[in-house]
């Protein structure tokens, strides 16, 4: 199948998911009931102030995680590299855990303390990993990945420690935060995320030629005229900030960033000019679809969406490793 066809189909599927998702849930909503805006009755209010913002948030988060994973897989030439591997999620989780444990209840510019702490933690972790690797001149991809893994382990045990010393209520909130969530009231959270995702997504998509060359070989990319040092920093920073924002808003939703780019690569090939837009759309659509499933499967209760993505992602990843070894190893 030609790449333009595959991308076209992705656009159609994404559009279908985005239209259908806010109508589905504990109660299926008739599109005619919501045409008049939020004031047209209880269904319209649920639709406009709960479900549409939730779909927006889910799409932005999924798109950002997916494009972020794609970018890091290319930058580090490693199939397992995502912003999470580099400490974004564990940093955010530590920040959020501390804020919950300490009972921080303030908010700044409408952003709750837990989100602020998570965002700060994410950026701190990335800066730490980058600084550690930088200290050993050259900051090679492998050293950064190993530093990221080490930071992840340390932060994970710190999270356990904070969790262990918390009371029952805080403990429950920490656990719930760590599972990832997309429930939101009103469009504020999605709108706050929008600029981060727009910038991060634009940079990653615009630099598709550089990503192609860098994903093959960094030295070869330099010899072809790519200013690798510059583009690596630009991509690294915008992606980290974007994914840090997502984790701060939604918690550490797993596997989207790792698996969606791989699936897209299997379908549309390794050229980032096509792979970038497809990963963005597919990541957003996948997370929104998972969220619909999470709402429907255990209705009237809701499964945490992060649990569902990882539940689907784990077996998928094993299949990728065992069944499609060649494709999986050549990120």
């Amino acid at each position: 199948m030609r790449r333009i066809t595959i991308l076209g189909l992705t656009v159609l599927v994404t559009a279908a998911v985005l239209v259908a998702a806010p109508l589905l849930g504990l109660e299926t909503i008739d599109p005619r009931q919501v045409a008049g805006g939020a004031g047209a009755g209880p269904e319209a209010r649920i639709f406009w102030s709960l479900r549409v913002p939730r779909v927006m948030l889910g799409f932005l988060a999924g798109a950002a995680l997916s494009v972020g994973g794609l970018t890091f897989q290319a930058l580090f030439r490693n199939a397992l590299a995502t912003p999470y591997t580099l400490g974004v999620s564990s940093g955010a989780a530590l920040g959020a855990t501390l804020a919950i444990r300490l009972g921080a209840a303030f908010s700044l510019l409408g952003i709750p303390a837990v989100s602020l702490a998570a965002f700060a933690g994410a950026l701190l972790a990335v800066a730490l990993v980058y600084g550690l690797a930088r200290a050993r001149q050259g900051c090679s991809a492998n050293i950064m990945l190993l530093a990221g893994v080490a930071v992840n382990f340390s932060f994970a045990s710190l999270i356990l420690l904070v969790h262990y010393t918390s009371d029952a209520a805080a403990s429950f909130n920490i656990l719930r935060w760590l599972m990832g969530r997309l429930d939101t009231v009103g469009p504020d959270e999605a709108l706050r995320l929008l600029p981060l995702v727009a910038v991060g997504g634009f940079v990653a998509l615009a630099l598709h030629r550089e990503l192609n060359l860098m994903s093959v070989d960094e030295e070869l990319a330099v010899s072809r005229g790519v200013d690798v040092d510059r583009y690596r920093v630009i991509l690294f920073v915008t992606t980290s900030v974007m994914v840090g924002g997502v984790v701060a808003a939604c918690g550490p939703i797993g596997f989207v960033g790792m698996m969606v780019p791989h699936v897209c690569r299997l379908l549309i090939g390794p050229d980032h000019r096509w792979l970038g837009p497809m990963s963005l759309l597919a990541g957003g659509a996948f997370l929104v679809a998972c969220d619909v499933l999470a709402r429907l499967l255990a209705a009237p209760a809701e499964l945490p969406v992060g649990v569902l993505t990882s539940l689907l992602g784990g077996p998928f990843f094993l299949w990728l490793l065992v069944g499609r070894r060649g494709a999986a190893c050549s990120a």
Binding site: V216, D217, L220, S223, G269, P270, A327, S330
Partner: peptide, 11 residues
């Protein structure tokens, strides 16, 4: 043109 033994790529 680099030394033989560069990365295998799917391109």
């Amino acid at each position: 043109v680099p030394q033989v033994g560069g990365r295998l790529t799917p391109f």
